[in-house]
């Protein structure tokens, strides 16, 4: 589905990603772990096309297309979704209006008919059950006055509505208490199909107890230094990131 080759990226002239190689196939869940400042979130932002990041080298192919050449909204149309670490507030714009606008743009780009308000509302109410959201969220302004947990649930709701091929979850577990974490993870799991893929970016192993990855990659200083199965996450949890650093030193 997505093939990242030797990806280098800068922000404000500083190199953050220094040669990422990663291939994700349909039906897979990949976890990207790493210490603070390792470039995890940068990778998520670069893949979704945030304008503050400059790609200096490498390529990203998504479903056979050059992803880096696409505007962020075109990437969204193609099926790339980013669940934001810090979801943005849009005062005065209702959640349902926002989601309907996004969904209909995506549908239009695929040559599908736009949903009218009635059809959309019916669908939205179904999807809200996935993240156990209250009906009042429909008319509340996008993320305005939402608690941290509500914002994250709202991200997963958006994912449920937009049905992306590739979902990138950027620190979705940060700021969540255990109950919210369970709801959010259960939501993500319900949305999993053999046709879509998920990249879970996280600092802690905790989230991976609920969203079980097929592969775990450890990112240090802008490079993937170790890949493995879900047991690698357990190892990290037990030993911290230092053991990876030690391994790196030994092999150097």
């Amino acid at each position: 589905m997505i093939e990242i080759k030797n990806l280098h990226a800068n922000v404000n002239g500083k190199e953050i990603l220094r040669g990422i190689n990663l291939t994700v196939k349909a039906g897979e869940v990949h976890a990207i772990m790493g210490p603070n400042g390792s470039g995890k979130s940068t990778l998520a932002q670069v893949l979704s096309g945030h304008p503050a990041y400059e790609v200096t080298q490498g390529s990203v192919t998504f479903e056979g297309q050059d992803l880096l050449d696409m505007e962020p909204e075109v990437r969204a149309h193609a099926g790339v979704f980013l669940a934001f670490q810090y979801p943005v507030e849009i005062p005065g714009v209702s959640n349902s209006y926002f989601l309907k606008a996004g969904l209909n743009e995506i549908r239009k780009s695929r040559g599908e008919e736009e949903l009218d308000s009635m059809q959309f509302l019916k669908m939205l109410k179904e999807k809200m059950k996935i993240v156990e959201m209250d009906a009042s969220f429909i008319n509340r302004p996008v993320n305005e006055g939402f608690s941290g947990g509500e914002k994250k649930r709202n991200e997963i709701l958006q994912m449920a509505v937009l049905e992306p091929k590739l979902a990138i979850l950027d620190e979705t577990d940060s700021g969540l208490d255990i109950d919210a974490l369970k709801i959010v993870s259960a939501g993500v799991n319900k949305l999993k199909t053999p046709q879509n893929a998920t990249i879970v970016v996280t600092h802690y192993q905790r989230l991976l107890n609920y969203i079980v990855p097929d592969f775990v990659h450890v990112l240090v200083k802008g490079r993937i230094v170790k890949s493995g199965g879900k047991e690698l996450a357990m190892e990290l949890e037990a030993n911290g990131y230092d053991f990876i650093r030690e391994e790196m030193l030994q092999s150097a």
Binding site: P51, E71, V88, G102, P141
Partner: peptide
Amino acid sequence: EDQIFYCKQRGINTENAISMIING
């Protein structure tokens, strides 16, 4: 930029994003 990027990431182009933000 973050508001606009958020909209774009959900499939809404810059022009519509701005009009949406302003109307809100």
